[in-house]
Write a protein that binds this DNA or RNA. Structure first.
Lengths: 213, 213
DNA sequence: CAGGAAAGATGCGTGCACGCAAGTTTGCGT
DNA sequence: ACGCAAACTTGCGTGCACGCATCTTTCCTG
């Protein structure tokens, strides 16, 4: 299908995107998020400020995207990896939990920074919307193509639930001045995610039921 | 509870907000959305441009809010009006359909304009997120307070579904130059809404079941 | 391999969002 | 009725997002 080897153009684009992500995160960590201007990020990545905005629509997006990276694709893949003998609801839940707990070392450092500034926090939460399209695709695959509409709604609901889980997880953040304490805010993230996704299970079961008939 | 009579301060604030909404929509209709600057809206409403931004975080929000107004509250009320003898899922669905089809005459004219400009279209779709909090509240009321978490997730899912319904409804919009033709883009909106909300019904039933035990 | 088309990078200009620090109005206790 | 405190408005300054026109790079086709 999409087996065409990348091509120089595309590779350069990804390299630039990567460089911007990297530069944004590094600078934000180094001097604090407020003291990084778009101009600085662009310069550090070796492109013009205008080009920066061809890749990211806001200053926050670049920083956040260094952490979230290709999480959307990985979630979709993780769902697809679960064979049809596990309930769809479980497959999705486990895939989500898996991908949100596998945050690398660097992500931890960055998350402290992100949860501090409201603007970054919001941008981070907004990334959950991005998991909808790929999720909808894999769900639709399991639902027979009669349920394409249903798949989309379920995927969007999952995205919404994940957002809520992250919100409540980040809730009681208050202090953290310069260095920041290494506290895990609310309950453990996996629990929050499972709790938030649980109410949707019946909807998944019903949808799945209808295709297995 | 909140029985304190408004008070002058609060009334003035609402008046200003109203004036801004009104001015924004009127000007946008009169000369087209692109030829309205924040400065113009502020002037028409008799406040400074800076004050405008104390009420609305973006130019689009003011225009859109003239149409969406207090839809959130009305949806919540419409759900609350349904007594406990109808399924929660149905109550919510009907309440949503009811409130989204009762668009006044003026809304129709405005909607044409909104669907034209991508920025406005996005702002309009973003308003669906606003129905979550009040919806969560009324749902929680029906679910016994053990399910506050569940209520929030369900409300967010409904918001997501409504958004999808609106998106697919607005999909094939292309023309509309000056006056605009009065075509209903896709299928009728109520159908889109019902279709989008249907997959969530099992989740509502399950939640409702658990409290009736 | 030549040459043109398509995609991307860049500079410039405009309007916008928002923090901050006054100035002004409203509300309330005495 | 007075006056203070809190809420709101406003002007200013900064950085930002993005449309448009132009120049450069990559790609494809003959």
């Amino acid at each position: 299908m999409t087996a065409t080897p990348p091509g120089l153009r595309e590779r350069k684009k990804q390299a630039t995107r990567e460089a911007l992500r990297e530069a944004a995160l590094r600078l934000a960590v180094e001097r604090g998020p407020d003291r990084v201007r778009v101009e600085d990020i662009a310069e550090a990545a070796g492109v013009s400020p205008r080009t920066y905005n061809n890749y990211f629509a806001s200053r926050e997006q670049a920083i956040v995207s260094a952490v979230t990276a290709d999480r959307e694709a990985r979630i979709a893949a993780a769902v697809a990896a679960r064979t049809a003998d596990v309930r769809l609801a479980d497959a999705v839940t486990e895939a989500v939990v898996e991908q949100y707990t596998n945050t690398g070392e660097r992500a931890h450092e960055a998350l402290l920074l992100i949860t501090t500034r409201p603007a970054l926090r919001d941008a981070f939460l907004d990334t959950t919307a991005g998991i909808e399209p790929p999720l909808a695709a894999v769900i639709a695959e399991r639902l027979d193509d009669t349920g394409a509409h249903t798949a989309r709604v379920l995927a969007a609901s999952v995205a919404a639930a994940v957002r809520i889980a992250l919100e409540t997880w980040l809730r009681p953040t208050g202090d953290a001045d310069t260095a920041g304490t290494l506290v895990v805010p609310s309950g453990p993230l996996p629990d929050q995610l499972r709790t938030a996704l649980a109410p949707l299970a019946p909807a998944f079961d019903a949808a799945e039921q209808r295709t297995q008939t």
